[in-house]
Amino acid sequence: MMINSVKVEEKLFQNRYVVDEGRPHISISEPLKASPALRTLVDICPAGCWSVQPDGQLSGTLDGCFECGTCRIVAKAVGQEIQWAYPRGGYGILYKFG
């Protein structure tokens, strides 16, 4: 079946977020070369938060994050660490329906 990749941003626009500006809850401590295993995050993050920069580094834009934990688990499984915490109380995704 042919289907173009949908724009996940348009899906995220339906959601309610309170972004804790300047306090990303997920970070990468040192520049993390996106190994092939880590590159999968770009595809499998359900909010499309991850991208690979031209210099090959993995970079996250977390405004749309669901706090689901997928990236943390996958990174850990391939032996790399992502500093992963929940946002401060009241911030982040706030489901209207859930």
């Binding site: 990749s5 999968t40 996958v74």
Partner: peptide, 21 residues
């Protein structure tokens, strides 16, 4: 399964879209 998503590099929202279609 997360392991299957990772192995196939499937975008979850594409999968959902395909299901809806």
């Amino acid at each position: 399964l997360v392991s299957d998503f990772a192995a196939s590099k499937t975008r979850p929202y594409d999968l959902l879209e395909r299901f809806k279609q």
